[in-house]
């Protein structure tokens, strides 16, 4: 369509970017609603309506504007939201996966600093735990990007989707590793250390204890954005440029998310040591081994791609 520093930009890229920015919060909120419904059914409850997350956020937006400290946290949360949207936008625009990951990290760092800035005991411990979670999952997220690169010959989401290789065939270990750490990322039990959707946190609401009203709503919306492109990563393992693999990819996203809900309800929260150790061991065993195998398959893969 037009040219941006040597890259041809297609209409498809722009449409998917706009669709993401506009629709992701709705899709993310809907997923959260379905999540709560399914969780309730698993626990033998009726559960809230599927649109409940939207009602919640709507209510938050109408709350009285109050804050603690000198309101420094509002700035950090706003930055978190903006960078989360940017990270997702890079992803759906088809940009470099590493850039997506690093921007996502920046967004998460803003969230952690927001927690620290309030100087509230609960928020600060929550922030520290959030950091621990980041340290736990970050290596595997990077290895996922690396694995997809090694199979598809490009870090660009656009090329990974367009490439005719069915990546999962070569990346079973990385896929398992990614599913493991996405449990941390989606804040599911047994890894919901820093804040929890469920009302049984020893840290009250952890990181978010001191957020309220619009700030809390902004955070909630940033989570919706985040979840959408985290699930998009799963899609990348399946996409090979054909419509039927795209359908399978979306089905796989649904199955994986259901699995996450199952895990969430099947486990109690574990200690932080378990989070760090298990995530790093999984990363080394599944991610590392997969990368080693890929290294020796390199010649073959390059030909395939």
């Amino acid at each position: 369509m037009f040219n941006f520093y040597g890259d041809d930009i297609s209409a498809f890229q722009i449409i998917s970017l706009i669709l993401y920015v506009v629709l992701a919060p709705f899709a993310g909120g809907l997923i959260a609603g379905i999540d709560r419904k399914v969780t309730a059914r698993m626990q033998g409850r009726v559960g809230p309506p599927v649109l409940q997350p939207f009602y919640d956020v709507g209510k938050l937006l109408q709350k009285e504007a109050v804050t603690v400290g000198r309101g420094a946290q509002d700035f950090y949360v706003m930055c978190c939201l903006i960078f989360m949207i940017i990270a997702g936008a890079f992803f759906f625009f088809g940009f470099n996966l590493l850039m997506v990951v690093f921007t996502l990290t920046t967004a998460s760092i803003f969230l952690v600093v927001a927690g620290y800035s309030s100087n509230s005991p609960y928020a600060q411990i929550g922030a520290e735990r959030e950091l621990l979670q980041m340290m736990s999952y970050e290596p595997m997220v990077l290895l996922t990007a690396v694995g997809l690169f090694m199979v598809n010959g490009s870090f660009n989401v656009e090329n990974i989707i367009g490439n005719e290789v069915f990546s999962l065939k070569f990346l079973p270990g990385i896929f398992i590793g990614y599913l493991f750490i996405i449990t941390i990322k989606l804040r599911k039990s047994p890894f919901d250390l820093s804040m929890s959707h469920h009302a049984h946190q020893e840290l009250v609401k952890g990181l978010t204890t001191e957020f309220s009203g619009k700030t809390l709503a902004a955070l909630e919306i940033s989570h919706w954005y985040e979840n959408i492109f985290l699930l998009g990563f799963i899609f990348l393992f399946f996409a090979n440029g054909t419509w039927y693999m795209a359908v399978i990819g979306i089905a796989a996203v649904v199955v994986c998310y259901f699995l996450e809900i199952l895990i969430d309800n099947g486990y109690a929260r574990m200690k932080w040591q378990f989070t760090l150790k298990s995530a790093w061991i999984m990363t080394l065993i599944f991610g590392g081994a997969n990368i080693f195998v890929l290294y020796y398959l390199r010649g073959y893969l390059w030909l395939a791609a």
Binding site: Y76, V112, G115, S117, S118, Q124, S136, P139, T283
Partner: peptide, 22 residues
């Protein structure tokens, strides 16, 4: 890959201490 995850931790906790509004 592992080293940068660790780097993230020790810088951010310092950043957090600095930006806390006491």
């Amino acid at each position: 890959v592992f080293g940068s995850a660790v780097t993230l931790f020790y810088w951010t906790k310092w950043l957090g201490k600095l930006s806390a509004i006491v």
